[in-house]
Amino acid sequence: MTEIIRIERLHKIFRIGKVEVPALRGVNLRVEDGEFVSLVGPSGCGKSTLLHVIGGLTAPTSGRVIVDGMDLGQMSDGLRTQLRKKKIGFVFQRFNLLPTLTAWGNIALACHIAGNRNGNSRAEMQAVIKMLGLEARMGHRPYELSGGEQQRVAIARAVVNRPKIILADEPTGNLDTENSELVLNMLCELNHKFGQTILLITHNPEVSTFTDRIVNMRDGHILES
C-alpha cells in the first residue's frame, strides 16, 4: 500500500492579537491510500485544525505535511487551493450547503469549480446521486431537505469530482441514529467502491467502529496506540 498522507512534527499556532494558541503541537500521522480512519478526542484537542491543515484550508506553522506527494508547508495559498480542488472533498457537521442553490445546483457547482464541464461529469453526477439515493431530491433547496438528506447532498458534492481524500468533520454530529448510520454506510461504500481515503472526526465511539483504524488525539498530539 502507498502512503497518501504523511505528517511529521506538525505545529499549528493561532495568534489572536498577542496571545498564541497552540492548536497542534507536534503531530505525526501516516495514512495509507484507501484507508478509512476515524479521529477521536476531546473538544478543543485540535481535530478540526488538523483536518483543515491537511485540506489546505490553513497553512501549517511548522512541520511537514505531505499530501499525495506534495508538501503543503512549501506551497503558496494558490497552490493549496489547487490541491484542495483536485484532491480533497470536505464534509462538515453543519452540512454547509449553499442555501440559495438546489441540491443539484450544489453538486453541479462543485463540478464547475473543479473545471469538469463536459458530459463526463454529468454521468458521474448521476451515478453519485443514485448511489446516495438522492434522485428525487435534486430540485429541492437545502431548507426543504431533512438533515440526513442535506448531509448526503454534501457528501455527493464532496465526492463528485472523485477526490482522493475525503475529510469529514463530525458528519453525523447533527443527525439522529438512523440518518447517522445511513451516512456512515455511504461513506463506507464510497471507501470500498472507489478506494477513496477517508478521514473522519467523531465524538461517537460507535461511529468509529465503522472505520479501519482509530486515531486518538489529546491536547494537540496524537496518542500512540
Binding site: 494558490g78 484542495r84 454547509n96 469549480i113
Partner: peptide, 14 residues
C-alpha cells in the same frame, strides 16, 4: 461570508 468560505472549501480560487 459563510458561503464564500464554503466555496473556498470546495476548492474555489481567489
Amino acid at each position: 461570508t459563510r458561503e464564500i468560505g464554503i466555496l473556498k472549501s470546495m476548492g474555489a480560487s481567489n
